[in-house]
Design a protein around this nucleic acid. Structure first.
Lengths: 233, 233
DNA sequence: AGTCGTCAAGAGCAGTGCTCTCGTTTTTTC
DNA sequence: GAAAAAACGAGAGCACTGCTCTTGACGACT
């Protein structure tokens, strides 16, 4: 499936890749709003209208970048998780947290494109859904692994979720099989806590008050891990 | 300070207000990226260049909207907090959580402007800092009140923050006097958890999986309250 | 009463996304 | 192998944007 049959298909695939590469570089420098089809075309030595042979609109180019971004953060999370022993569930959780934060700090504009305000009028197409949950799948697997190993012993301090939560828990459980509703609820809290922290840090909400975010982040995520009942070893 | 001395100052203040009102309406409809100075001018029956007498650039108009937005959410939070008895610390926390979420759901584009991706090249000026922390001040006061009343009894399940956290805790403590480092850390976790949840919900990250976000949100925030050691009454 | 500052209007510049047409080239079909 | 079909790059053009500069008129202070 890689090299297209005809020469035209091959050069088309190559040019498409080149366009997204240049676009990603522009995105990294000036953000999504500063991404200009004409500027990309200029850098390619093309005229602007030629770009439309490859991406029918600016939004489609952005969608390609979004998919790439989700895959990039997903891959970073997968690698961080795989580098730990399977039994070290707490370590895997912390590795995932730091992988997300490190990737976000290294690619702030891409992170903003994925987890910041959705661009106006933009509706996520089907193609973005699968890559978008790659990191969540890793997260769910850690919890399922721990639960399956009987290593998930959450402290009994939180109230149980209401019965009406069970419907949503059913859907969330697809990525973390076996977990009871209470743990699904805690998983949601930890996950939103992770991205909430990273977003606050990246979007400047910690403005001159948290000067050592790495320390506070690590401690906060460790706390989430404890609440999930994750233990090392 | 309200009504300007001269007629000119009065009409200037009036026109400035009218511009921001129209701009806020446009912002609510099509988002920050769709906010056009020319469109605002058209609706005012002015020519576009005339707007620049009142706002030197589009960014300055956005800044005015950001300040208004922070004040709006801050006021909503203040009112929700004030509607509860001072001693009902847990109730006040839940009221603040729901106030933030309700305001965000009612003003999604404004929320995105405040807590979403910062607009490219935009640097928050001094004037936005004070309004930006109005909600945080309320939050801190609830915790300080509870702590002062001896009603803050957090469950002893989380590890203590590292010593290196104390510097940042010092600064955070300015809005929640009296709280020990451990509670400051928990306060950060709960606060980022709140906005992380709202952002996930608003920006479509719960995409077709959490269909009853109100229930899950309430339960998650209740859990954060428990971890903070908040009790009713 | 005269000066100065403020104001709205208009023209204009550089840039954007996107559409359409027009030759050219490549691929497919007969 | 020749003809039909599809894909392609270039160019012009439309409607729109933020922003600047100049011009002429009005209101405010000395």
């Amino acid at each position: 499936m890689s090299a297209g049959r005809t020469a035209r298909e091959r050069v088309r695939a190559e040019l498409t890749r080149e366009i997204t590469d240049i676009a990603r570089r522009h995105l990294a420098v000036e953000g999504a709003a500063g991404l200009s089809l004409r500027a990309v075309a200029r850098e390619m030595g093309m005229v602007s209208s030629a770009i439309y042979r490859y991406f029918p609109s600016r939004d489609d180019l952005l969608t390609a970048l979004i998919i790439d971004g989700y895959n990039a953060v997903g891959e970073a999370v997968e690698n961080a998780d795989a580098a730990r022993p399977r039994g070290d569930h707490a370590g895997r959780w912390m590795a995932v947290c730091h992988a997300v934060r490190d990737w976000a700090l290294a690619h702030p504009h891409e992170y903003a494109l994925l987890y910041g305000s959705p661009v106006p009028g933009y509706k996520a197409p089907e193609d973005t859904i699968a890559p978008a949950v790659r990191d969540t799948v890793v997260y769910g697997r850690i919890l399922s692994d721990a639960h399956g190993a009987g290593a998930l012993t959450p402290p009994d301090v939180l109230p149980p979720p209401p019965a009406s939560f069970s419907q949503d828990a059913l859907r969330v459980r697809e990525v973390m099989p076996g977990l009871p509703d209470d743990l699904v609820a805690r998983a949601l809290a930890a996950w939103t806590g992770l991205f909430g922290w990273v977003s606050f840090e990246l979007f400047g909400q910690f403005n001159q008050v948290i000067l050592d975010p790495a320390t506070a982040f690590d401690h906060t995520m460790r706390g989430h891990g404890v609440l999930l009942g994750l233990r090392s070893g």
